[in-house]
């Protein structure tokens, strides 16, 4: 396999128990792979949690990490989700400087990106926006010139894309 270094999105279904996230994260840390983004929450079955994580790694060592993850007793299943075969979403919450003269421009951006205003101060706005990671990147970079006070992204979550009509729904 030719080494390709790019973002990989892994979806790991785990038992919803203490210490499981540390076990998963430990396998990445041991090899020096950084976890770029991470989202964890229980699924519709409260005994299980779904971890969505993005990592920068070459494909061949990543295959090993996936195999090692699968050996963890608390890991129920693991799947790599290529961007083309999945729908990804991320939420951004940001407080941005918004003096009277720029507030209108910021409001326009929020409207264009289907964001929401969460909180209003005399010279600042707190807004939220969700979308695919690229769209969230765009929104963030357009806000940056106004002066970002504080910013938090949730890390992306992803589900497999549904098949076209007549096809089967992707299993997971």
């Amino acid at each position: 396999m030719a080494p390709t270094k790019r973002h990989h999105t892994l979806v790991v279904l785990v038992e919803n128990k203490a210490g499981v996230l540390a076990r998963v994260a430990g396998l990445f840390a041991r090899r020096g792979f950084n976890i770029e983004s991470l989202a964890v929450a229980p699924t519709d079955d409260p005994r299980l949690s779904r971890i969505t994580l993005a990592t920068d790694a070459e494909s061949a060592p990543l295959e090993q990490v996936i195999n090692q993850l699968d050996k963890l007793i608390n890991v129920v299943s693991i799947r790599e989700l290529p961007p083309a075969e999945s729908v990804e979403r991320e939420l951004l919450v940001v407080t941005v400087n918004a003096a009277a003269e720029t507030r209108g421009q910021i409001m326009d951006l929020v409207r264009i990106f289907d964001g929401r205003v969460l909180n209003v101060g005399p010279d600042k706005l707190m807004v939220s926006m969700s979308g695919g990671p690229n769209r969230v990147d765009d929104f963030e970079s357009l806000l940056r010139p106004y002066g970002i006070v504080e910013l938090q992204r949730t890390g992306k979550v992803a589900l497999p894309r549904l098949a076209k009509a007549g096809g089967e729904v992707g299993e997971f």
């Binding site: 203490a18 210490g19 540390a22 076990r23 430990g26 007793i73």
Partner: peptide, 11 residues
């Protein structure tokens, strides 16, 4: 954690 097949902390 990294030197066992699995470990338990009994709650």
């Amino acid at each position: 954690m990294s030197v066992t097949k699995h470990n338990f902390l009994v709650a």
